[in-house]
Deep mutational scan, measured.
Amino acid sequence: NQASVVANQLIPINTALTLVMMRSEVVTPVGIPAKDIPRLVSMQVNRAVPLGTTLMPDMVKGYA
């Protein structure tokens, strides 16, 4: 199973992502692939993302 990107903490709306905010985990449904973590750094979330939430492409500005 492919690992997805999961929030390692509460990420407030419009926050630029950093490595410490994200972890990889095998979850259902599948979200953004963990291999894309380096690409996500500095991108902003367009909503508040609670701890443990799988990041989906529509949550990150400029990803999709």
Rank of each mutant, 00 (worst) to 15 (best):
residue 1 N to H: 14
residue 1 N to K: 04
residue 1 N to I: 15
residue 1 N to S: 15
residue 2 Q to Y: 15
residue 2 Q to F: 14
residue 3 A to N: 13
residue 3 A to C: 15
residue 5 V to D: 01
residue 5 V to E: 00
residue 5 V to T: 12
residue 6 V to I: 13
residue 6 V to E: 02
residue 7 A to G: 03
residue 7 A to T: 13
residue 8 N to T: 14
residue 8 N to L: 05
residue 8 N to D: 14
residue 9 Q to W: 08
residue 10 L to P: 09
residue 10 L to F: 11
residue 10 L to A: 13
residue 10 L to H: 07
residue 10 L to Q: 11
residue 11 I to R: 00
residue 11 I to S: 01
residue 12 P to Q: 07
residue 12 P to W: 09
residue 13 I to N: 10
residue 14 N to G: 12
residue 14 N to P: 00
residue 14 N to M: 08
residue 14 N to A: 06
residue 15 T to I: 08
residue 16 A to R: 06
residue 16 A to Y: 06
residue 17 L to H: 00
residue 17 L to M: 11
residue 18 T to M: 06
residue 18 T to W: 03
residue 19 L to H: 12
residue 20 V to Q: 09
residue 20 V to K: 10
residue 20 V to D: 10
residue 21 M to P: 02
residue 21 M to G: 03
residue 21 M to V: 05
residue 24 S to P: 09
residue 24 S to I: 10
residue 24 S to Y: 09
residue 24 S to D: 15
residue 25 E to Y: 05
residue 25 E to L: 04
residue 26 V to G: 06
residue 27 V to I: 11
residue 27 V to L: 07
residue 27 V to C: 08
residue 28 T to A: 06
residue 29 P to Q: 08
residue 29 P to H: 13
residue 29 P to T: 13
residue 29 P to W: 04
residue 30 V to P: 13
residue 30 V to A: 11
residue 30 V to K: 03
residue 32 I to M: 03
residue 32 I to N: 00
residue 32 I to A: 02
residue 35 K to E: 15
residue 35 K to F: 15
residue 36 D to P: 00
residue 37 I to P: 00
residue 38 P to C: 10
residue 38 P to L: 06
residue 39 R to D: 07
residue 39 R to C: 15
residue 40 L to D: 00
residue 40 L to E: 01
residue 40 L to H: 00
residue 40 L to F: 02
residue 41 V to N: 04
residue 42 S to D: 07
residue 42 S to E: 11
residue 42 S to F: 15
residue 42 S to H: 11
residue 42 S to I: 03
residue 43 M to V: 04
residue 43 M to Y: 05
residue 44 Q to I: 09
residue 44 Q to N: 05
residue 45 V to D: 01
residue 45 V to L: 07
residue 45 V to S: 14
residue 46 N to L: 11
residue 47 R to E: 14
residue 47 R to S: 10
residue 48 A to N: 12
residue 48 A to E: 10
residue 50 P to T: 15
residue 50 P to I: 11
residue 50 P to W: 06
residue 51 L to W: 10
residue 51 L to M: 14
residue 51 L to D: 14
residue 51 L to C: 14
residue 52 G to I: 02
residue 52 G to M: 09
residue 52 G to Y: 09
residue 52 G to P: 01
residue 52 G to S: 14
residue 54 T to R: 03
residue 55 L to N: 00
residue 55 L to A: 00
residue 55 L to E: 01
residue 56 M to F: 09
residue 56 M to V: 11
residue 56 M to R: 07
residue 56 M to P: 00
residue 56 M to E: 06
residue 56 M to W: 07
residue 58 D to E: 12
residue 58 D to V: 07
residue 58 D to P: 09
residue 58 D to Q: 08
residue 59 M to R: 03
residue 61 K to P: 14
residue 61 K to C: 15
residue 61 K to Y: 08
residue 61 K to S: 12
residue 61 K to H: 10
residue 62 G to S: 13
residue 63 Y to I: 05
residue 64 A to L: 14
residue 64 A to P: 09
